[in-house]
């Protein structure tokens, strides 16, 4: 018998601090699987966010930098400009990337900065205990929208992939989910592609992973993944939003 599935080598033995059923663990594993598959552990540098994934630096075996809230794309820019031969990725949540760090995100994208961004959208601030996120759904009840997100006073959710794909520069933008086996497998492919794009010098790749927060959504892990299917994915449709490899192909013809 041969091993067909095991913990990827580029994850440390540190036990994840995430709540039971939290998909952060799945997404960490997908990132590590991509690093393993591409054989880039020794030259990869990850940037951890502020939020639930703040301690990601303990979980990946590659070199890691912990960034201030929202600043990961700027820190990654510094790392990549200093070490262009290395592989730089950020791992950020929705509050980090789409609220406090929106300027850093948009400008890294419009520079087509040759980095890989893993953006975890679970429509809530997890670490601080379940406050409204820029991606919280209309009517979603959170600690800071206790009567449901009111579009008149609290604004509409931000669809990051749609927003960024309006820019000319970014190379690859895809939205995936991790709520079932099929979607996890697609997410795995997308994340690996985002790393491969960087290795090939293509530029900015962002993978939005629609995720869940069972604890702060007040649901069982099973119910939370069902909610992703029923509520999140209809608002945040999965798919490729920008792929400039098609332009590359056109130019080649």
């Amino acid at each position: 018998m041969a091993i067909v599935f095991q913990k990827p080598a580029s994850l440390t033995d540190k036990e994840l601090h995430y709540c039971p059923g939290c998909p952060h663990g799945i997404i960490h594993r997908l990132v590590a699987q991509a690093i393993d598959a591409l054989g880039i552990e020794g030259k990869t540098i990850g940037v951890a966010p502020v939020g639930c994934a703040v301690m990601a630096y303990d979980y990946f075996t590659c070199d890691m930098v912990e960034a201030a809230h929202g600043r990961a794309p700027a820190v990654a820019t510094g790392l990549k400009r200093s070490l262009p031969e290395n592989v730089i990725f950020t791992y950020q949540g929705d509050g980090d990337l789409a609220s406090i760090g929106m300027a850093e995100t948009v400008h890294a994208a419009t520079r087509n900065e040759n980095i890989t961004i893993i953006f975890v959208n679970n429509a809530i601030y997890g670490m601080t205990g379940g406050q409204m996120a820029p991606t919280s759904l209309p009517g979603q009840i959170t600690q800071t929208s206790p009567y449901g997100r009111d579009l008149k006073t609290q604004g509409y959710p931000i669809r990051v992939c749609e927003l960024l794909s309006a820019l000319d520069a970014p190379y690859y933008i895809e939205r995936v989910a991790v709520n079932n086996v099929k979607n996890v497998n697609q997410a795995k492919k997308a994340i690996e592609k985002a790393f491969r794009n960087q290795i090939e010098g293509k530029g900015f790749s962002l993978i939005e992973v629609v995720s869940a927060c069972p604890t702060n959504w007040g649901m069982t892990p099973q119910k939370a993944l069902q909610w992703v299917d029923e509520r999140m994915i209809p608002y945040y449709p999965l798919g490729v939003y920008k792929d400039r490899s098609k332009e590359d192909a056109k130019e080649a013809n």
Binding site: M1, A2, V4, F5, Q6, P8, E15, Y18, G25, N185
Partner: peptide, 19 residues
């Protein structure tokens, strides 16, 4: 059947699958 669906969904890398 060694499909590894369990391991695919496990957030904590608890599961090793051999086939």
């Amino acid at each position: 059947i060694g499909c590894a669906f369990c391991a695919t969904m496990c957030p904590d890398c608890v599961i090793t699958v051999e086939k």
